[in-house]
Design a protein around this nucleic acid. Structure first.
Lengths: 379, 379
DNA sequence: CTAATATGTTGTAGCCATCAACGAAATCCG
DNA sequence: CGGATTTCGTTGATGGCTACAACATATTAG
């Protein structure tokens, strides 16, 4: 966790209300990301006065975002009540993919309250995906009466423009220039964001998983449809000018290699993928293939590590399995292909969150505006 | 200029004094980066009240950081005095390199007040470089009596750890684990920072050059000693976990190519460099060599562009010359080697600042703490 | 049961920006 | 040329926010 640096170009001024908004945001984020902290801990962490934390927490409780739980026994002195995220609020997370539409209700603290999945025989049209999600949402809402929906987030496997949530293209879904955000906000009746699924995963691992407390990390995710990724830079998710940043699957690792579906040759995901592993397993040459893929993965990681100088690299999906099987080889290849001493310091670790990763991450992204201004909500 | 995103992990609380500090910082940064703005403009840009801007500017003027100049004729209404950066304060910028030590006095607004350069027959030892710089500083100080030194910055061609300014290694200077910061602060009697020279250049181009107003950009600099670089992400310079981020010269572009001095093969800077151009010119095959280098440069840029999704790529040093000579070819290669549609949107432009770039940039980095808390200075 | 410790609570004080009213300095227009 | 208009700086009163000190409360140590 490094200190915040000021932006190169100065922004706008702040007034007294801004101070309050910032402090409320700090507190609710702290509670949400840690899952609960005593008021005394919050006082220490924020550096604010006891009385200030008291009034701010009371406001957040009134707004229904946190509640004060029984104190835990600790040591000498008067026990401090534990401030926990409210249990009756949630974010709707939606993840349409080629073979299914997945929907989850994600509460504060990164807790998955409920989730549902509908298998599909073919990639869905945008409208169909939304209709299916809305259908599942109605069922989940009936099962959880009294749950207050704060926001909705849709994670799409493709290029999503951050500014307006336009899905510029999602090749596996065969979507082009699809605008889901408005229709979804209409359907769910809450503010809705659309984001890239890999970027959502980075956020989830960064806050609740293997990247906790790390301010500079890279994430490589291996799935059936290729290698996605993302980066956390100085504590914030890298989005780039349009929101397309983090396409590490298309780092060059072998110019003489195969043609990638993106039109170029020798991309990381043409050399490291599940199809090759399956073919090698069928041919009885899996060991050699895993060695080969470990080498290329280290090379691809090295390229990106040299650019970003992260303190951790998190591997998810089948890349986590590859790390388990060929950890030494990957590390050696990374050492050989990253600009030392960056490679010396970097830790390569498997992702900690399970399949809920994408849902938890996109819920976090949908929650971001609320966390930034906790009392701005309508009711 | 995109909006600020909150960090993934919440930080500390703010008090009322923090509001004032933030507003002072906003104002002085605005004046410093724009070179001067009327109080009315500052009011509009910050969104603060007229009276607030009035008192804040008065405080900054008392601290000797800005002064109120004669109003410029504009239109109807009472003219607004122009707030300009103070002319009698400066930052000492030092840039030791293999063949010379360069020293500059950089004022607010990015103005180079004076500079001096001492040629060397061999790369200097750290102590010698510092002694030479101190000598030149004394001469410059004598020429500019009344100039108040605010800070000092040393730009080193090598890996510099941001946390403490340790020069981990600077191969061309043959420096290893050199700690200059303390000795320099002692010699110059002001707070001193040590930074990488390419990172300093990025800052300079980002604020005063080709990257003005761009929040996501990449910078590739070609010099006699190789290709350095850096990135601006969401308005802040990318530093990474240790401060080593941005080594784009060692992006893989040709695995079958030559062995790089870094120990690997096919790095961008083994394929694109001045030595090859010189050799080709001697052999009468310069045209073909420029085509070849343009192709490899586009490939290397494409790799990094796919990871960062910048809106601009700035080329400096001999790469700016290559852009002038082979702009079409570089653009075509970038198109072919970056993940579309990132390549469609990116603008490739030459650096705008001259040789003062490194000095201006490292001065800016040295000034950063003061800009963040303008009235914290001793006197 | 008492002392010590740590924490919540309350009322006061201090810092900061806003706001409204007023005055000043230019342009506009008859 | 001179009043109306526009725009901006200045001043004193006002309200929002956190800090602080004093007091109350709840636990542990012995």
């Amino acid at each position: 966790m490094s200190a915040q640096r000021p932006p190169l170009t100065a922004g706008r001024g702040t007034r007294n209300e801004g101070t309050r908004q910032h402090n409320l945001s700090t507190l609710v984020s702290l509670v949400h990301h840690s899952g609960g902290a005593s008021r005394a801990e919050l006082t220490r962490l924020t550096g604010l006065n006891r009385s200030t934390v008291g009034t701010l927490v009371a406001d957040l409780a009134t707004a229904g975002l946190v509640f004060e739980d029984e104190p835990e026994v600790t040591g000498a002195g008067r026990p401090s009540p534990v401030v926990r995220p409210a249990a009756d609020v949630a974010v709707l997370a939606v993840n349409p993919d080629i073979d299914a539409v997945e929907v989850g209700l994600v509460g504060l603290g990164g807790r998955v309250i409920a989730h549902d999945r509908r298998e599909l025989s073919a990639p869905p049209e945008p409208e169909a995906a939304l209709a299916i999600a809305a259908d599942m949402w109605r069922a989940l809402a009936d099962e959880h009466p009294g749950l207050r929906l704060l926001a909705a987030g849709i994670a799409v496997p493709g290029l999503v423009r951050t500014a307006d949530g336009l899905v510029v293209r999602a090749p596996h879904l065969k979507w082009h220039d699809v605008d889901l955000a408005d229709a979804a906000a209409e359907a769910f009746q809450v503010p809705t964001v659309v984001r890239n699924d890999a970027r959502a995963s980075v956020v989830a691992e960064s806050i609740f998983g293997a990247g906790r407390g790390v301010s500079d990390l890279l994430y490589f995710n291996g799935s059936a449809s290729g290698i996605g990724g993302g980066a956390v830079v100085d504590g914030s998710v890298l989005v780039g000018a349009d929101g397309f940043a983090g396409e590490f699957g298309h780092t060059l690792v072998n110019p003489g290699g195969e043609v990638c579906h993106c039109g170029r040759t020798g991309c990381l995901e043409t050399e490291v993928n599940m199809q090759r592993q399956q073919a090698a397993a069928d041919a009885g040459t899996l060991d050699a293939e895993l060695d080969r893929q470990a080498s290329y993965l280290g090379r691809g990681m090295g390229n990106v590590v040299s650019a970003f100088n992260p303190s951790s690299v998190v591997l998810g999906g089948f890349l986590a399995d590859l790390l388990e099987a060929r950890g030494e080889e990957i590390a050696a290849s990374l050492q050989g292909h990253a600009f030392a001493p960056m490679a010396d310091e970097v830790r390569v670790v498997p992702a900690q969150l399970g399949d809920d990763r994408v849902l938890v991450g996109v819920a976090e992204l949908a929650l971001r505006p609320l966390l930034a201004d906790p009392l701005a909500q309508a009711s």
